[in-house]
Design a binder for these strands. Structure first.
Lengths: 360, 360
DNA sequence: ATTGGCACTCGCGCGTGAGGAGTGCCAGGC
DNA sequence: GCCTGGCACTCCTCACGCGCGAGTGCCAAT
């Protein structure tokens, strides 16, 4: 059908433009791709595609380049995510499996992604809500100062300092440690949070005065003042919250910006600035799809206005279905979508698997 | 004297070239700077300076630009590190004092430096050898698997997993924890390392068999198998070593590369690549001077061949005299040395002070 | 040692013009 | 109705040539 050929023409235009970075003309098209028609026919098709806003020409008598809308259609309907070669798969697997801890997995993934796609790679730290609390350590730094260390099954550690309103002796600290550990050890992060809330309420009920007042009474011999427990619990809940969705983001492959070709100088600065802003990066990774699907945002569709002319390819990953984080790449709209999507998907899968194994 | 005026000419050339990024001619020089001589005289001086290899002209009949050697002389003899304005000082102080922890101090310093100098800023994490061991926690994850958590007075935490050759029960773990803590708590990092070595030797002496063999005998009731102690100690020593000189480096202001002007495209890529390599960055920061001096490395003097056309301005910082780390900036050889040196020095001082306070 | 004068060099910007890629349109063939 | 070859037209690109001006080097005079 005519309509089919037109799409084939669009696909060919996108592919050629991505490859050559130059506007592509009718003649070159029929030669490089085996469309069995004449240049004139292609020209007619192009005219139609241009009317539909899928392609456009920089000047009269120049070739055509795809518009954002054209790219959109291309990724939605014309692209087949070609799977990675087995060699590539093996490379990814062995490289990622060499990681020694979570930090290392993330670092290696960023590197891998950047290398595979020749774009800037962005990886959010894995969420840890699936992991459990291994241990809570409470250390007295000073009479009114505690160090609370939260140790998770994933090997991650979070420490906080708590300033108390009243003195605690060693025995009281020990009691506190025991109480808290009994409440949370072995629990998942969310469960631990609720367990802590319960603990706090129990303490409030037991204590003669409201635990939230500034002057709780001393209940004597080793038992812990309600107020102190309250303070420690508050900090712990906070630490748990931070850890159940880690907001940190790692970028890599910024050097790939150097070969960005044309849009280069206009794009470079906002790009680099964006890469230094965690907030912006998180926005970019944005709503990671819960399924295994790879999301592509093209040009102005993106959440960051500054980044015109760039596309973002992201997907979710993580050990377990609900522990979801995101990773992806950022590059010019003129990019190899099929390859990028495949790479993003592959890295996400291997990463999920590795995290899964190390968690289990 | 003649010689003096020649240096004045060199200084003027450097200053103008840095400001305008264009080769500077004799006429412009006498106009913009108040040298009381004619252009012809300056031309003669320039000819001499060129013979000495301090300046050079891109083409015949073009102005002159400084060579690396010229910059070197300029920095060594002609530059006066103009102190920061009080407004700038206050800005630095308030911004850095807003930091909540060590990580934050580092992040803010990088940002500040990049902003002040409009260059790429590089800050190494502070060394912590001045800090002491607050606590060591040993947690049994599995019969043959321990989690060892090292907590320092600075609030920093390092955790390691130890795979044991033999099972340990809870009691043995408790003993191990006690032994280790007795040895190292309160010690400085270096002292702690030696204390651990002593502990290991004691254990070896007490044990019937050599502690380093794979099959130490069981010495019964709660005391710890020599082999297990050995393994834990090894890991701890390693963790201490990593922490007594933190090798992590943070960069910022990469966006400043975007306005690098001319050498731009040739410089950009190696630059960005270097910034992603921790090792390279550490080389760049290199031998931080132990005094309060600011070091300037110009062009090929630098330890990284790839970075031609760039200069590095670094200095040491840290709480206490021996706890030394480094920070600095990287930029084109054509940079404002006076300003950069002042900024680097100022940030280093404030950072040292803040770390000092928070440590004390 | 400094200066003014002067001839010379050479990069830069600009207009011009040939070449060519690509288009749009039209008329004819299947 | 769709495809095709032909043709005139547009407009970008590049190379060439030229004039301008900045800047130099040298020299003779002070």
């Amino acid at each position: 059908m005519v309509e089919e050929r037109r799409l084939a023409v669009l696909r060919a235009i996108v592919e050629d433009y991505v490859a050559t970075e130059e506007p592509v003309g009718s003649k070159a098209l029929v030669e490089r791709h085996g469309l069995g028609v004449s240049p004139a026919t292609v020209r007619n098709d192009m005219a139609v595609l241009e009317e539909e806003g899928l392609i456009h020409q920089p000047h009269t008598s120049a070739g055509r380049i795809p518009t954002d809308k054209g790219y959109r259609l291309f990724v939605d309907r014309l692209t087949t995510v070609r799977p990675m070669s087995t060699a590539e798969k093996r490379a990814i697997a062995t490289f990622l499996e060499g990681a020694v801890d979570v930090d290392d997995v993330v670092r290696r993934s960023v590197r891998m992604l950047a290398q595979l796609t020749h774009q800037v790679a962005v990886v959010q730290y894995p969420t840890l809500s699936a992991s459990t609390v291994r241990h809570v350590e409470v250390v007295a730094l000073a009479p009114r100062r505690l160090l609370v260390v939260l140790i998770l099954s994933s090997g991650r550690v979070e420490q906080r300092i708590v300033e108390l309103a009243h003195d605690l002796d060693d025995e009281q600290v020990a009691t506190l440690r025991t109480q808290v550990n009994q409440a949370v050890v072995g629990e998942r992060l969310v469960a631990a949070t609720t367990a802590l809330a319960a603990l706090r309420e129990d303490a409030a009920a037991d204590a003669p005065t409201d635990a939230r007042t500034d002057a709780p009474t001393d209940v004597g011999d080793g038992s812990v003042r309600g107020g102190s427990l309250d303070e420690v619990v508050t900090v712990l809940v906070d630490a748990l919250a931070v850890h159940s969705s880690d907001q940190r983001v790692v970028v890599g492959g910024a050097a790939n910006l150097a070969r960005a070709g044309e849009g280069f100088d206009t794009m470079l600065r906002p790009m680099l600035e964006a890469l230094e802003e965690q907030v912006v990066l998180l926005k970019l990774l944005g709503e990671a799809t819960t399924g295994g699907a790879v999301t592509v945002r093209i040009g102005a569709e993106g959440p960051v206005e500054e980044l015109v002319g760039t596309s973002v390819v992201t997907t979710g990953y993580g050990a377990g279905p609900e522990a979801l984080s995101a990773l992806g790449i950022v590059g010019p709209t003129r990019m190899d979508y099929a390859g990028s999507m495949a790479a993003v998907r592959a890295v996400a899968r291997y990463m999920s698997r590795i995290l899964d194994e190390s968690n289990g």
